[in-house]
Design a protein around this nucleic acid. Sequence first.
DNA 1: TTTGCGCATTAACCTAGGTTAAAACGAGAT
DNA 2: ATCTCGTTTTAACCTAGGTTAATGCGCAAA
Lengths: 174, 174
Amino acid sequence: MNFDEFIKRTGIPVSFEKGAHVFHQGDSNDSLYFVISGLAKAYYLSIDGKESIKSFIKPGNMISSLSSAHARLPCTFNLLVLENTQLLEIPFKCLTKAAKEHHAIANQLIDRLLMLSMKKEQREYELLTLSVESRYLNFMEREPILAEQLTQNDIAKYLGVTPVALSRIKNRLK
Amino acid sequence: MNFDEFIKRTGIPVSFEKGAHVFHQGDSNDSLYFVISGLAKAYYLSIDGKESIKSFIKPGNMISSLSSAHARLPCTFNLLVLENTQLLEIPFKCLTKAAKEHHAIANQLIDRLLMLSMKKEQREYELLTLSVESRYLNFMEREPILAEQLTQNDIAKYLGVTPVALSRIKNRLK
DNA sequence: TTTGCGCATTAACCTAGGTTAAAACGAGAT
DNA sequence: ATCTCGTTTTAACCTAGGTTAATGCGCAAA
């Protein structure tokens, strides 16, 4: 039994129109979502209404609110789709159940989680040690195609800076 | 077969004197370390010599350079002990091998990795959205005992500011 | 064609934190 | 008791980015 196969066999197809929310911060949501086509963004909204983007989720990638699905707490972030998007929805419990029943799936899940940890570590590293300018340059180098699909606004909020500041940085660079 | 048991049975005890390095950035190091007693810090050193602290590792917790142990790249950070410290050292391969052989260990490892991901997500969230002042307050509330063992210098470097700035913030707060 | 709206840019001003350096403050070693 | 070394505080100055607001630029709806 293969991990990808499991996702594709178990997942229920759901579609969202550009701009729609899959779930909101504060909700309870126990699913894992696999992006088939389209694009999603996971973002935080602070009390005073400021938006910060946690991540963009491209086709082939997955997203889940671990705090809700695994720890049974409210979702800490919002998930919305930036394009018309097709997802596969899998109850998180199904996945952990499958891991418990099929040793192969457990090991493939471990591999995914290790990859995820490394990715998160990289982002944490950049936020901790790099200037906004360096983060911007890294992002543009690593994700040139994605960057073209995004507004300056969203790139800025992903980098942890205001759109105004990002505009200045771009200006400074050329 | 239990995860903790496995670590304790397989791990080789190693000791480091206060101030000693377990490994350096750029090294290759394929081990996972479990802290029995003492305290360790994982930190980045930038080209211009600036230090940023990735995390502190307390007794009962584990640390590994995933990029080296799992992805066979050089370590991205340094690991040094802040007190005389006893560790258990386990080749990372042993752990993944054990997960492949024992389904129970695989599932406990999944649980640990999910916890780790949530922790990293929390840190990423704070770095992305909160001011240094809020991060400082959160840290002091969450880790009051740990904070007492650390210098202001190390707390600042963990929060991503200079010691000078942290001193100012403390002053402002009282 | 016009209206409206979201996005990007620019400018002026403000603030938090960086930088550098000096002084003050321990705690341990001699 | 004094010296030393690392840590913390304080101060002066600088810079990156935040804030607010005005302007310009599409593009889609009417």
